[in-house]
Design a protein around this nucleic acid. Structure first.
Length: 1118
RNA sequence: GCCUAGGUGGUGGAACUGGUAGACACGCAGGACUUAAAAUCCUGUUCGCCUUAAAGCGAGUGCGGGUUCGAUUCCCGCCCUAGGUACCA
């Protein structure tokens, strides 16, 4: 039979699936090899011909490694959370899970028919609760960790708490927020739980912070920096604006240095490493404090050129700098205000566009240069960015071009500080030469000067060496539906982790996938979606309550009130039912012992009956604990921490419940209390004075009592606890959450106890080869490295880096074809089309034409007429009887009719041809336009290969004779070549070599079993279907090919007796001479010079010199 | 501007550490088979000059220089293309 690719391919795809041929073994004596692809987002459009490029390469590699005796893990999955499914859901109401499921089915079908050797038993989907359970779990570990700079690793938050308990904040060197408090151990213990939690949040590796975010109103979500291009969303191109929002962030900056250092240890493409280095943006320099002339305040600047400090003739602040109002003198106020207002109005784009114009304003104030006491003016200008460094620079016009232009524009002094500096027309940033005009560093070179200046600054306390990073913490949240819910709920405005037992926190159903009317994320639409803790939320790190002892230790002012009333009697009993009270009692006691700073201050003014009303602290009412409560008047006074604004909805519910029970609620912010506690106290007093007295004796009647049965088996207890509900975090995780750790899940994809077992991680360790696109350079690939390092710090994984070797496959661009429609004199189109070579003679307009009806730029005119009804009677102006189309390289997209679908090609020439052709196209890493021209060549090659095994009538026929020397030479050449090529990922050249080998064997009329058998093994990674078929025809067991050993290369077969030496004269090759390889240099020279042909070329001249490179070349110099 | 990669026939591309530039394939041209087409096979194909032909001569890896017996490969300067990035102090 002729080569029947369709039957063969279907047969073997079925066989592999049924026999799980490619299932990786969990335990193996073989060495491991982990080959992974960047898993796809299953989009609705399905695969185009560019997508499989990387998958084919990794599949060839995986199959090759199996032949080489490795236990290969080669998995595939889907990055199935994401925006497109959600956009589609918004438009159609279709649940994203359904769309995603359907798209995955399409992807799977398309992948299967290319014949990949994936271990599908390990498939992962980031949107599956089994998977995102562990994404949430890792989030929880991040929440429970802080970064210890001294140990240079992440540690558990318990460790930090125990340090605080023993030593206070002293001796902690952490990566954390700027506004951390400093406190003693006693002060720490004296804080309320609320205050402690607030403080700890400043250390956690995932934390809440008000940050300026890229808000896209059209998409209703926040975008990462790399999703915004020039002020517009990358997806959809909607405008993006800056907005302040409370957001979850990941403290990736803690790992900046390790992320940078790690790059030197991994085998990744240089451009990609460079992008990461830029993104991290480490600059080594110094921070310097410039004292203000008439104030104790100072301006801190960051500089990478501390050595130039004697050339600093002014300071420049960003217009947004916080000291600007303070610095501005009355005389300059109008100028400064105008400039700041103007700068504010300018968008990022305008600022960039005006980069060349110099503008600024003088504040009127002066600062003192710490090294020489010079008085220098302080200016503001928008070339200084608030977001980088300290938002202030010391301007050295002689060395920095921007400072130079600024100095020229505003006539500020420019001081030459290096002897060889040329500063007549522009700044000269040289580091060569010796310093002048620079006091104690005069005569020093750059290195010495930098060290000397920093030493001096440190000595006088005016600065120190500092390293600055450009990288910012990564925002970790989207106001979107189709993502992982964050395993957090809010209590009193502070975030708490849900219990690990409650994972996965499953994405709830909503009626619409849009934000709510008041701008809350879609998850706010989920009915009754609230958290019910198993125990009241207490910080996990808290020491167990130790009754009076702890209270005594806490010292402080809480002695008299501390004696707890019997909880079953008295007023407490009146306002909370017994069960809930029991639940809340410990918690409210806890709070009382650990008030926030503001609570503490206010309590000192309210306690007892100082204001004429009896006030209770942390009093339980129904399921809530009021901060301060007057039972007589029915007033609840609440103090809000700064996280409170997050939780307006929860607060409203709370207020509603309290109102229901006859309480009025008034709120103050912590800031109000801290600023003016007396005023707050007097407002409270006034309010209480106005309110009528309540009849407390009737309170127990009006209070709706539940029938409480204290039962160990639950029952009503469950029902009762339903009321203790807290609002979940409503944003979801960003797209990169699941992809930041998925390679571990493949190692142990069905584990429901751990994200992956220790044994699995211990065996597979890391990814040996990772193939994917470079578009993830600063997103996925940076975050993955971050999470990997974090998990390593926790001792959960082994390697510091996740991906040992990484290859970027090039982008496959589209190649569009055009036809040229003729226009009449008025520019109206006529139904006549002009061939590309003739368009200069006519007035035409180009139109995209479907590339599938064009073959080698020749339009199939009949198919074109059928393509669109309006072209049915189109006419053509041809050249040489053909219609030639124009060509342009563009992105592959439906609207440009240049999408080539792998399904069509597989139907036409088969998967094996497609696989080999995609490799044959060129180097894997190079971007190139797709061009189907030429696929025939590969198809012909496979037919030719098939024919080697068959006689003229297509009967299978091989000979069992001893292989000839020529056959062995062809075989061993290709054995070595393919080995070398695969190891250096040069797949295109090995396809060429296969063609050469098959051409040679065809010429030799070889059908030798031993030779062909090895050929089948070598070719099988590239064209697995045809090889499996031939393998069985050769008499082997079906399916055994994939794990059969790769043939051993034997150099003996390539040894030659003779070599055709190219003989060149003065470097120009003139002829070839066959010379025995047993001859050494001098003999070769004698042989060459003895040759009559050579003498002819020498024309009687005597050679000056003869160079002989054995086995390579002979060159004669005359 | 800066960083990184790259620039080779009509096209995709090959040439491992300096050693016969253009492998392999497409396309194109000519031919064989066929009533014809498809398929298949054969020959030629870097450019220019010369020749009936065989052969020969010259140029040639973005441009200009250099090192070398010999450079697509190494060095210097420049031009162009792609990707990244930016008032980053």
């Amino acid at each position: 039979m002729d080569y029947q690719f369709k039957d063969i391919e279907q047969k073997w795809q079925k066989f592999w699936a049924e026999n799980q041929t490619f299932k990786a073994e969990d335990k193996s004596t073989k060495p491991k090899y982990y080959v992974m692809d960047m898993f796809p987002y299953p989009s609705g459009a399905g695969l185009h011909v560019g997508h499989p490029l990387g998958y084919i390469a990794s599949d060839i590699f995986a199959r090759y490694k199996r032949l080489k005796g490795f236990n290969v893990l080669h998995p595939m999955g889907y990055d199935s959370f994401g925006l497109p499914a959600e956009q589609y859901a918004i438009q159609t109401g279709q649940h994203p899970a359904i769309t995603t499921e359907a798209n995955i089915a399409t992807y799977r079908r398309q992948l299967d028919q290319i014949g990949f050797s994936f271990d599908w038993s390990r498939e992962v989907r980031t949107s599956s609760p089994d998977f995102y359970k562990w994404t949430q779990w890792i989030f929880m570990q991040l929440f429970n960790s802080w970064y210890n700079k001294d140990a240079d690793k992440a540690e558990s938050i318990e460790k930090l708490v125990s340090h605080f308990e023993q030593n206070g904040s002293a001796g902690i060197n952490a990566v954390c927020d700027d506004d951390i408090l400093s406190f003693t151990a006693d002060e720490w213990k004296g804080m309320s739980n609320q205050a402690q939690q607030e403080e700890l949040l400043k250390y956690r590796l995932t934390y809440l912070r008000e940050s300026t975010v890229n808000w896209c109103p059209a998409l209703g979500t926040v975008l990462a920096n790399d999703e915004v291009k020039d002020g517009f969303s990358e997806r959809g191109g909607y405008p993006v604006e800056q907005k302040k929002m409370m957001q979850w962030s990941m403290r990736i900056t803690a790992y900046a240095d390790r992320l940078l250092k790690g790059l030197d240890t991994i085998d990744w493409p240089e451009p990609l490493k460079e992008m990461q280095r830029n993104w991290i943006g480490k600059s080594v320099g110094a921070s310097v404090r410039f004292k203000l002339e008439n104030s104790s305040d100072f301006i801190e600047v960051f500089t990478t050129r501390a050595d130039t400090i004697f050339g600093a003739t002014f300071l420049v602040l960003a217009p947004e700098h916080e000291l600007v109002p303070l610095l501005t003198t009355d005389a300059q106020k109008a100028d400064i205000d105008a400039y700041v207002a103007q700068a504010k109005k300018k968008s990022e784009l305008e600022r960039m566009a005006e980069a060349k114009t110099v503008s600024g304003a003088f504040t009127g104030s002066y600062a003192i240069n710490p090294v020489n006491g010079e008085k220098i003016p302080v200016w503001i200008a928008d070339y200084v960015l608030a977001g980088y460094g300290t938002g202030a620079v010391m301007a050295v016009p002689s060395g920095d071009q921007r400072d130079y232009l600024f100095a020229k524009r505003f006539e500020l002094p420019i001081i030459q500080i290096i002897d060889i500096q040329k500063i007549e027309t522009e700044a000269d940033p040289t580091k060569e030469g010796k310093y002048i005009n620079s006091d104690f560093i005069n005569g020093l070179n750059y290195k010495e000067a930098t060290a000397a200046v920093i030493a001096k600054l440190e000595e006088i306390g005016a600065g120190k060496a500092k390293i600055n990073f450009r990288m910012r913490d990564a925002i970790f949240g989207r106001q979107r539906y189709w993502g992982e819910p964050v395993p957090v709920y809010f209590k009193d405005g502070l975030p708490y982790l849900i219990d690990e037992k409650d994972l996965p926190l499953v994405l709830p159903e909503v009626d619409k996938y849009l934000p709510t009317e008041d701008g809350e994320p879609p998850l706010a639409r989920a009915k009754g979606w609230n958290y019910k803790p198993h125990t009241p939320p207490v910080a996990p790190s808290k020491s167990p309550p130790a009754g009076e002892t702890l209270a005594a230790e806490a010292g402080s002012n809480f002695s008299e009130d501390e004696k707890l009333p019997d909880y079953l009697t008295g007023a407490y009993r009146e306002t909370a039912d017994a069960y809930i009270y029991e639940q809340l009692r410990d918690f409210s006691r806890e709070n009382r012992k650990n008030p926030t700073h503001a609570e503490n201050i206010l309590w000192q003014l309210l306690r007892g009956s100082q204001i004429g009303h009896k006030i209770r602290r942390q009093h339980a009412i129904d399921a809530y604990i009021g901060d301060f409560v007057s039972l007589q008047k029915g007033l609840v006074i609440e103090l809000d921490g700064h996280h409170h604004k997050l939780n307006k909805e929860a607060d409203d519910i709370r207020t509603g419940v309290l109102n229901h029970f006859g309480f009025t609620v008034i709120r103050f912010s912590n800031d109000e209390v801290l600023e003016n506690p007396q005023k707050v106290a007097s407002v409270i007093k006034q309010k209480l004075d106005e309110m009528p007295e309540r009849d407390l004796s009737k309170l127990s009647d009006t209070f709706p009592k539940r029938a409480v049965q204290v039962s160990p088996t639950g029952g009503d207890l469950e029902g009762a606890s339903d009321d203790v509900e807290y609002s979940y975090e409503l944003s979801t995780m960003p797209g990169w959450a699941g992809s930041s750790w998925y390679w571990f899940r493949y190692m142990d994809a069905h584990n429901d106890k751990e994200f992956a077992s220790r044994e699995a991680i211990g065996y597979w360790k890391d990814v040996d080869l990772y193939i994917g696109g470079s578009e993830h350079a600063t997103g996925h690939l940076l975050y993955s490295r971050f999470w990997n390092k974090f998990l390593k710090d926790l001792g959960l994984v082994i390697e510091e880096e996740p991906f040992k070797k990484l290859i970027n496959q090039g982008m496959i661009q589209g190649r569009s074809n055009f036809v040229y429609r003729l226009m009449d004199d008025e520019g109206r189109p006529i139904n006549t089309f002009v061939s590309h070579g003739l368009i200069k003679q006519y007035k035409t307009s180009p139109l995209h034409v479907d590339v599938n009806i064009v073959d080698n730029e020749v339009l199939n005119v009949n198919k074109f007429k059928q393509w669109r009804p309006e072209y049915a009677d189109a006419e053509f102006i041809l050249e040489n009887g053909k219609y030639i189309c124009g060509v342009e390289v563009e992105k592959m997209s439906k609207s440009k009719y240049n999408v080539v679908n792998p399904d069509d090609l597989i139907d036409r020439v088969g998967a094996d041809t497609l696989r080999m052709y995609e490799m044959f196209l060129g180097p894997l890493e190079q971007s190139k336009p797709w061009n189907t021209n030429g696929i025939e060549g590969v198809f012909k090659f496979l037919r030719k290969f098939w024919r080697l095994f068959h006689d003229a009538d297509w009967n299978f026929k091989v000979s069992d004779a001893e292989p000839t020397k020529a056959e062995l030479k062809s075989l061993h050449k290709i054995i070595r070549k393919v080995e070398e090529d695969i190891e250096r990922f040069s797949f295109n050249t090995s396809v060429s070599s296969f063609m050469i080998a098959v051409n040679e064997l065809t010429d030799l009329k070889s059908n030798n079993r031993a030779i062909l058998s090895d050929m089948v093994i070598i070719l099988s990674p590239y064209a697995p279907h045809i090889c499996e078929e031939l393998w069985v025809l050769l008499g082997n067991k079906p399916g055994s090919l994939s794990h059969t050993p790769y043939p051993q290369f034997n150099p003996d077969y390539l040894v030659e007796d003779e070599f055709a030496y190219p003989v060149s004269i003065n470097g120009k090759t003139k002829l070839n001479l066959n010379i025995s390889l047993s001859l050494e240099g001098a003999d070769v020279e004698a042989f060459v010079l003895g040759s009559a042909d050579v003498q002819k070329y020498l024309e009687g001249k005597t050679p000056k010199k003869v160079i002989v490179v054995k086995g390579r070349i002979v060159n004669i110099v005359v």
